[in-house]
Amino acid sequence: MSFVFYVLAAMTLAGALAAVLLKNLVHCALSLTVAFAGLALLFLELGAQFVAFVQILVYVGAVAILVVFAILLTRSAETPKAGGVFSRTWLAGLSVAAAVFAVLGWAVLESTPWLPQTTEAPAADVEQIGEALMSRYVLPLEIVALLLTAALIGAVIVAMHEKEGAQ
């Protein structure tokens, strides 16, 4: 475990925590971006260059912007006057999340002796990824293309005004 890993993990987790804890939703979205960027850096640390750049391009460049737009369009940035930001059933939610983490953490810690020990980084250049996408994974690729088209049209129709003549 290198020093870099600890710094990046702390950055990612701090971003994630801030994203769910802060009151102002725009701050949440910006912290979420920090978490996304930290995750991209973790991918780089793992040697997955291509995925790291895709992560930044898609999450920081598109998803974070979408979230921000949605926040502004629904006027959610203003904190609600009554009731706070947490749900009435927050205790149940928190205990479920804590239970999930306990189980996952227990599983990881218990299986530590059997985890693989490889140290040399596997090579994954763009050429290999491209060849894999075009040969073995060509069907998933086509399905993702179809899904993205459907999602694009669906999102436009869902978010569109129902009034006549309005765009």
Partner: peptide, 16 residues
Amino acid sequence: ALMFAIGLAGALTRRN
């Protein structure tokens, strides 16, 4: 795992 738990807690406890 920790990130997953944070996300789950956020999804289950926030009102927005």
